[in-house]
């Protein structure tokens, strides 16, 4: 039996080690090296790349990424909780409603982002419609700003918020609400004092599950944000392509990775491994 199990695990161990752990190790080693004249990675070893993370120019981008991700996460939770509640209460159409939330998720992420470009750009549907109705003369600058990026992030990751809240709500004992009502709580009081506190693990999981991909987002800020609203993901890509500064790009990547892992560890410490 032991041999069978080893055989079963071998291919995934190979892929995980060779195509995930070793590449990450290479990034770690690059982050501690110096950029070569032609963009390569050369000795000597240094920690200067990490020091540069605190350069205001890059620091600003990171702070902005965090703030935008926080905004998108907050919006996802605000939109996700009532939606999950609505689905849980619709006993009859529960699975249909849930599938409808997941449906866009099964569609290409690129297509979903393009749909917003189609709506928001200067010659896009919203501007064309408003101009055709004579409400505005000049197109509104809807695309290529931070709001557009946040909208895109919320659109992209809302399903990640609805699902954990939904499964948390569904686990709640229906009798709890009846008990609360029986003890004299009005519906909104029951919501605030019973449902919301009991739903805290679901909300925390939802928050982390949305925040992490937002923080590492690349495509959304790239297509909806234009050059001025770039986030950490774009900064990393930039260092590896145009700027050809792989050591610095690696250092940013690891800082991002550290942030993601710290968040997950905090959540798992608090709510256990089943939280995710």
């Amino acid at each position: 039996m032991k041999h069978l199990r080893a055989m079963f695990l071998a291919p995934s161990v190979f892929f995980t080690v060779v195509l995930f752990l070793i590449p990450l190790t290479i990034i770690v080693s690059y982050s501690l090296r110096t950029r070569g004249v032609y963009g390569g990675v050369v000795d000597p070893w240094t920690i200067e790349n990490y020091a540069r993370l605190f350069d205001p120019l890059y620091g600003m981008i990171m702070v902005r990424s965090v703030l935008m991700s926080l905004a998108a996460t907050a919006l996802c939770l605000l939109a996700g909780f009532p939606t999950a509640l609505f689905i849980v209460r619709n006993e009859k159409h529960k699975s249909l409603l849930l599938n409808l939330i997941m449906l866009p998720f099964w569609t290409s992420f690129l297509v979903r982002t393009y749909a917003w470009m189609f709506l928001l750009r200067d010659t896009g549907l919203i501007n064309s419609a408003l101009m055709a109705m004579g409400i505005i003369k000049e197109p509104l600058p809807l695309l290529y700003n931070e709001t557009a990026v946040i909208v895109g992030l919320v659109y992209g990751y809302l399903p990640f918020a609805v699902l954990p809240i939904f499964s948390n709500l569904e686990r709640l004992d229906k009798a709890l609400l009846e008990a609360a009502a029986d003890l004299g709580a009005k519906p909104w009081e029951a919501m605030f004092h019973v449902v919301l506190p009991l739903c805290a693990p679901g909300l925390r999981a939802a928050g982390v599950l949305v925040f992490i991909p937002c923080l590492g987002a690349y495509l959304t800020p790239d297509l909806l944000g234009g050059g001025k609203s770039i986030m950490i993901g774009n900064l990393i890509q930039n260092q590896f392509t145009t700027a050809r500064d792989w050591p610095f790009g690696s250092a940013i990547s690891l800082a991002l990775m550290a942030g993601v892992m710290a968040l997950l560890i905090v959540l798992i410490r608090r709510d256990g491994e089943e939280a995710l």
């Binding site: 199990r5 995980t16 995930f20 070793i22 290479i26 993901g233 590896f240």
Partner: peptide
């Protein structure tokens, strides 16, 4: 059949690693 924490942990980590980081690390590799 039998847990292997490091393997399931690595798989989970690869799931939450931002795509851009997976991409550049594979490129570097």
């Amino acid at each position: 059949k039998k847990q292997a924490k490091w393997l399931s942990g690595s798989l989970y980590l690869s799931l939450v690693t931002p795509e851009i980081i997976s991409g550049i690390s594979l490129l570097a590799f």
